[in-house]
Computed example of a mutant assay.
Amino acid sequence: MSAVTTTTTTTAAAPAPPSAPRARRRRRGLAPGRPLPAARLVGPLLLLALWAAASATGQLDPAAIPAPWTVLRTGVRLWTDGTLSTDVLTSLRRAAYGFALGLTAGVLLALASGLSRTGEALIDGTVQLNRAIPTLGLIPLFILWLGIGETFKIAIIAIVVYVPVYLNTHAALSGIDSRFVELAEVQGLTRYRFIRQIVIPGALPGFFVGLRLGVTGSWLGLVVLEQINATSGLGYLMFQAQNYGQTDVILVGLAIYGIFGLVSDSAVRIVERRVLSWRRTLSS
C-alpha cells in the first residue's frame, strides 16, 4: 500500500519541471521583440488620419490649416506647372553639396583628433567652441565673407553637418577599449591594419549616429537659408507663399521637407543595419 502511495505521489509531482521553461520565456519577454515592418510610418499615418478627421468634421479652420486633400491638390498643381519640380531639385542640390562637404570635414577632423594627441589639442577645442556658437547666427558673417549667393548657403549647411558627425565619431574613437590597442600592439599590427581592423569598426556605431543627426540638420538649415536672397528652392517657395497668405503652399513645402528627412534617415538606418550586421542589439 505504501509503495502504491509513493508511486502515486511521484507521478503527481512529475509535472513540476516545466516551470523552468516558463521562467526562460519570461526572461526573453524583456526584449522589445521583433521589429515591425514599416513601423516608423505608423506615427505619421496616424497624425495624417487625425488631421483628415479634424478637417472633415470642421474642427480645423481651413484658412489656417487646410485639409490634407487640399494640400495634395496644391502640390499636384505646383508640380504640373513645373514650379515645384524646379524648387525641389534646387533644394536637393544645395543639401547634397553642403552635406558632402560637412561629412568629409567631420570624418577627417574626427580621425585626426581621435588618433593623435596633437590633433586633439589643435582640433577638439576649436570644434567645441564652434558647437557652442549657434550656426545660424553665423549667417551675417558668412554673407560678408562669401557674398549673398549659393556659396554661403552651402557653407552653413556644411557646418551644420560636420559638427554632429565630428562629435559622435570622435566620442566613438575615444571610447574604444584600450585593451584592443594593447592586443594590436602585441600582435604587431601596422598603423594601417590597426585603423582598418580596430579603429574603423569601433567608430562606426558613433559615426552612424552623427550621420543621422547631420542628415536631419542639413534639412533644418536649408529651410532657413533658402529664405535669404534666394530665387528658387522650397524655402523660397514657402517664403513667397507667406507673403500671399497661401497656407496650403506652405504646408506642401513642409510636407516635402518632412518626407525628405524621413526617407534620408531611413536610408541611413538601412545602411547602418547592413554595415553593422555583426552587432546584436535590442533594435536588431
Rank of each mutant, 00 (worst) to 15 (best):
T5Y: 11
A12K: 15
P15T: 13
A16M: 14
P18T: 10
A23E: 12
R25A: 15
R34E: 05
P37C: 08
P37T: 05
A38L: 15
L41G: 10
L41P: 11
G43R: 07
G43L: 14
L50Y: 09
L50D: 01
A52K: 01
A56D: 09
A67M: 03
V76P: 02
V76M: 12
G82Y: 06
G82D: 04
T83W: 03
L84N: 07
L92G: 02
R94H: 07
Y97S: 01
G98T: 01
L103W: 13
A110T: 08
A110G: 07
R117T: 08
T118F: 12
G119N: 08
I123V: 15
T126H: 12
R131P: 00
G137D: 04
L138F: 07
I139T: 15
P140E: 04
F142H: 07
I148G: 00
T151S: 10
A155P: 00
V163Q: 04
V163R: 04
G175C: 05
V181R: 13
G188Y: 09
G188W: 07
L189V: 08
F194H: 11
F194K: 09
R196P: 04
I198V: 13
F208T: 00
V209Y: 00
G210H: 06
G210N: 06
R212I: 02
S218T: 12
L222P: 02
V223K: 10
V223N: 04
L225A: 03
L225G: 01
Q227T: 14
S232F: 06
S232N: 14
Y236K: 07
M238V: 14
Q240I: 14
I250S: 05
I250H: 05
I250A: 04
I250Q: 11
G253D: 06
Y257K: 11
L262D: 05
S264M: 13
V268E: 00
V268K: 08
V271S: 07
E272Y: 03
E272P: 09
